[in-house]
Each structure stands twice: as structure tokens, then as C-alpha cells.
Simulated assay, not measured.
Amino acid sequence: MLKKIDKEKMFLSDQGWLQSRFHFSFAEYRDYDNMNFGVLRVLNDDIVHPQSGFGMHPHRDMEIISYVVDGEITHKDSMGNERTLKRGEVQYMSAGEGVYHSEYNNHKTDDLRLLQIWIMPPRKGLPTIYGDVSYKEEERKNRLLHIVSDEEGDAKVKLHQDANIYVSELDAGKEIRFAIGNGRQIYFVQIEGESEVNGLHVKRSDAVKITDEKSLHVKAVNDSHFLFIEMKAV
């Protein structure tokens, strides 16, 4: 079963320095019927304007992944990590025992666009971990790139939770297929361009909830950039 979520129906937040499209209930958007999709608790599509960002703030008992779409993000945290990431690069933080961090767009003229993804951990009090990976464009060009897995998976970024994240950039007309295991589900996000997802037309910033399907078939209508989270169905 496929359920499309049009971007026009998502909640838009405008803080001046930050514009966000919330896929799930978050911050000033309260919707108890839209709290999560399986272990996926938050997915925010953020635009951070130049020389602004999120000041130092705490997190606890959450696994947080940032995927940079455009621009650059500079991370600092209470563990002493400091790193600037650009398009296609991935940042991961397991805030199990508690951590403070900040995320800034220090560029003078260019906006930062990133997907902020929060995955609920399998239990509380897990070790606090930070990591980042600089993927090359050719690793996701016309192929699936496995950017996040569980601890037993083969991705460079590993979660405590049983969840996987894949990204791809397909040229127009190219397609990929992905087998969906029994008892698994997918949350699909069209980052840029347009695709046909199991025959369903999706545009930039749309999403699709995919349940009770045996496979995922994505065909690029035009140059297409997308991400999906695969997880246990609940």
C-alpha cells in the first residue's frame, strides 16, 4: 500500500532565519495523529539562511541523522567534535546519555538545505556517539547508496536501531528496484526532481509511506534525488 503525502499538506514553519517543512509533529506543530512512522520520529526539511543556525542545545535518547542537500553545515558538540559538511555528506549523533550541540550555516551568501532525521533508539541510556561520512557523488549516481544501517549492517554509519537509510541521484529515465522484506516498511522522500514510485508520481519534497509491498520501484521522471528509510513495520 502506498500513501502519498503532498508537500503542500505538510506543516511549514518560518522562523525568519529558518524555514522548515515538518513531516511529523514537531515544535510548534502538534498533531497526535501524525507522531511517527514506525521508529521514524522526526523528518524535517530545513532551509537555514547564511550566518545563522541552531545554538547549543541538548538532546537525549534519540538517534539523529543529518543529510546535507545544499550548502554547508558546521557542527560543534559537548564531546569536542567540530566538523563542516557539504552536499551528500552525512552526520550521525546518538544522544543516548545526553549531549549538547550546535549546527550553523557559516556561509556568507548561500542557504543550507538539509534533512534532519530522528530515529527512536531501541532503549534508553545508550552510549553517546558522533560520526560523519563524506560520500562522493558517484557513489549515489544512478545507484542506491546505503548511508545508514543497524550495528550489523554494512553502511559506514551505524545506528543502534533496526533501520536503514538509502539515497540515490538518478538521471532522467533511469530506474532502481529494491526488495522489501516481510514485515518491513519504507518512508520515501523526494528531495529534488520527480519520480514514479511503484507507479505513483511524486514531486520535489513529497513523501510516500510504503507498507505491505514486496518491492520498491523508482523511475526518474527527470533528474531525481531521493532518500528512503527502511524499517520494521509496526
Rank of each mutant, 00 (worst) to 15 (best):
M1E: 13
K9M: 12
S13C: 10
Q15C: 09
G16I: 04
W17K: 04
Q19W: 11
S20P: 08
S20H: 09
S20V: 04
S20Q: 09
S20G: 05
R21V: 11
F22P: 04
H23V: 10
F26P: 05
F26M: 08
E28H: 14
D31M: 07
Y32P: 13
F37H: 04
G38D: 02
D46F: 04
V48N: 02
V48I: 15
H49W: 10
P50L: 06
P50R: 06
Q51T: 13
S52D: 08
S52F: 08
H57P: 09
H57L: 08
P58T: 04
P58K: 06
E63Y: 00
I65P: 00
V69N: 03
M79V: 03
G80L: 09
N81W: 08
E82M: 13
R83W: 11
R83C: 11
T84L: 00
K86C: 11
G88E: 09
G88F: 01
Y92Q: 04
M93W: 00
G98N: 09
H101I: 02
H101P: 05
S102V: 09
E103W: 08
E103D: 06
N105P: 11
N106M: 14
H107W: 04
K108A: 15
D111H: 14
R113C: 02
L114K: 10
L115V: 12
Q116M: 02
Q116E: 09
W118S: 04
I119M: 06
P122Q: 07
R123P: 01
L126Q: 01
Y130W: 13
V133Q: 13
V133F: 02
V133C: 09
S134Q: 14
Y135V: 03
K136D: 13
E138H: 13
E139K: 07
R140W: 10
N142A: 09
R143W: 05
R143H: 11
L145T: 00
H146K: 11
V148C: 00
S149D: 03
E151L: 13
K156C: 00
L159G: 00
A163H: 07
A163R: 02
A163E: 01
I165A: 06
S168M: 04
L170V: 08
D171H: 12
F178R: 13
F178K: 13
I180H: 09
R184C: 02
R184I: 05
Q185D: 12
Q185V: 06
F188E: 05
F188G: 01
F188K: 03
F188W: 05
Q190N: 10
G193F: 08
E194V: 03
S195Y: 03
V197Y: 03
V197I: 14
G199L: 08
G199P: 06
G199D: 05
L200D: 11
L200Y: 12
V202Y: 00
K203C: 11
S205A: 14
D206G: 03
A207N: 13
K209Y: 12
T211G: 02
K214R: 14
V221F: 05
S224Q: 07
F226G: 06
L227T: 05
E230C: 03
M231C: 00
K232D: 14
A233F: 08
